[in-house]
Every structure is written in C-alpha cells, then in structure tokens.
Design a protein around this nucleic acid. Structure first.
Length: 282
RNA sequence: GGAUGAAAAUAGA
C-alpha cells in the first residue's frame, strides 16, 4: 500500500493526474484498500493539478468508505480551493474542521490565508491571522510570506512592511528569501520600485541571497513604472554582482513590458540577452 | 526514524 501511495503522489507531482487515478481505482478494485494516507495523496494530487471539484469528490468518497479525514486531508482540500479561487469553499472546509474537532495548525491557516490572498481579500486574510493567534498557533515564516504576498495582490505595500516588521517579535532573527521576495513584490506591485530596491539591499546586508525570482519581482516594479532600461540594468547587475543568471521568466517580463509600453524596438536588445546568457526559450 | 497537506517574479490557459 505504501508503494501505491508513493506512486500516486509522484504521478500527482508530475502533472499526471489521470495515471494517479488509474492506480487509485485499480487498487480499489483489486489491490490493497486505500487508507487515509492514500486518499490524502490523491486529494493533494487533485489540488496540485487544479481540480478542486475532483478533490472534493474524493473527499466525499473517502467518507463513504468510512475513512476519517485528518488534518492532511483538510489541508489539501483547502489548498485545492485556494488554487482554484474558491475562497468561500475554503472557509466552509475550515468550519468542517471545527465541527469535527480537527485542530487547525500553521499549515491549515497558511492555506486559508493563501485562499484569501489569491482572491485579493487582505482584510479577510488578516482576520484569519487574528484567529490563528487567538488559538495560540505560532506564525512561521510561511505565514508571513503568505500574508505579505496577500498585501502584494491587494496592492497594500504599507501593510506588507507592517507585517514584515512583526517577524522579529515572533522569535525569528531574520526573514528568508521567500519573505523578502514577497516584500519586494509588494513594493513593485504597489508602485514603489525604489523601496523594492532598498528591500533588496537590506536582504543582501542580512546575508540572504536574492535568487532569480527576487530579481524578477524587482524588475517587474520598474517595468510597471515604464522604465524598461532599469530592467536591463537589473539583469546586468544580477549576473555581475550577485552571480545569478537570468531565466526565461525574466525575458518574458521584458517582452511583455515592451509590448505594454509599445516599445517594439526593444526586441533586438531582448534577444541579445537571450543569446548572451544562453537562455532556453519557453 | 521509510508513503500524504501551506508561501515568492512575467505572460498565458
């Protein structure tokens, strides 16, 4: 049964949901009976492959078979709602947990806040954050990255900084690269590219190395302000100073910026970046 | 102590 579960998990992670299901139903017919972990793996596979309705069906089915959902089950289900944009349903699942006496942990709260964040509902995410603290669940760095990302989506950079400053009060000496990158993204989306630059400086000063995603977020801030040249400078800088190579997403950002800003003459310069760094077009 | 759940950049679906 572990072998089956591992294979279902791996198929799910490779985007082969159909194969995961054929194993799953194969075992229901002829193999070992799926246990709670198998069901959880199947629901997680649906979540990852953006099939919230299918996830819910499997959830119902496991209960029909007399298997009690645990916090992993609920976590994956909420995640499926988050990724599918079904905020209301995510909260419904949260209520189901309360009704069934399953305690909500950091992961559950992050997934719930993530559902709010993707729907740009910052106020609601903050209510979840309050509930979490009331229930004595200690926030971790993922909690903060989700909250700050929600501020980015909701275009509330000042709130992002406020949350960022809370991190040290919870016993974390410093943030990690994901939290810093989310903060850069919040500045960029909020129209504060200069502050995004300063966030990157302070992350480097604190010994956290920016990666290509961090630079992508920073670049996005400048192109949103119409400054494509700054974006090219960032690419130079990331390679020369930080030893991080640009990837296809960065190039996509340049292409899209030149399209939005009606600067088609940038095309040659963009292509020369592709050639210079040997970037495989996506 | 072996299997399952949460976070970051462009565009698109």
């Amino acid at each position: 049964i572990k072998t089956y579960t591992i294979m279902i998990d791996v198929y799910g992670k490779c985007g082969q949901l159909a194969r995961a299901f054929s194993l799953f139903y194969g075992m229901k017919r002829a193999g070992p009976k799926p246990n709670v972990i198998t069901y959880n793996a199947m629901i997680a596979a649906c979540a990852r492959n953006n099939e919230p309705n299918v996830a819910y069906r499997v959830f119902k089915e496991m209960q029909t078979c007399g298997i009690r959902p645990d916090k992993f089950t609920y976590g994956s289900l909420i995640d499926s709602c988050a990724k599918g944009g079904h905020v209301e349903r995510a909260f419904h699942i949260s209520e189901l947990m309360d009704q069934n006496g399953v305690a909500k942990d950091q992961t559950i709260y992050s997934a719930l806040m993530d559902a709010c964040g993707r729907a740009k509902q910052l106020d609601r995410a903050l209510l979840v954050y309050e509930e979490m603290k009331r229930n004595a669940v200690w926030p971790n760095l993922i909690t903060f990255s989700v909250l700050i990302d929600t501020c980015a989506n909701a275009r509330q950079p000042e709130k992002a900084f406020q949350l960022f400053s809370e991190i040290k009060h919870w016993g974390y000496p410093r943030a990690n690269v994901v939290v810093y990158t989310a903060l850069i993204d919040a500045c960029s989306k909020g129209g504060w590219p200069e502050r995004a630059e300063r966030v990157m400086e302070s992350m480097v000063a604190n010994g956290i190395r920016p990666n290509e995603i961090s630079f992508g977020a920073l670049m996005d801030g400048w192109t949103r302000e119409g400054q494509i040249s700054r974006a090219f400078e960032i690419i130079e800088r990331m390679v020369k100073v930080h030893r991080v190579l640009p990837n296809a997403v960065l190039i996509g950002g340049l292409i899209d910026a030149s399209r939005r800003l009606k600067e088609p003459d940038r095309a040659k310069a963009i292509w020369s970046v592709v050639v210079k760094y040997n970037i495989r077009p996506s």
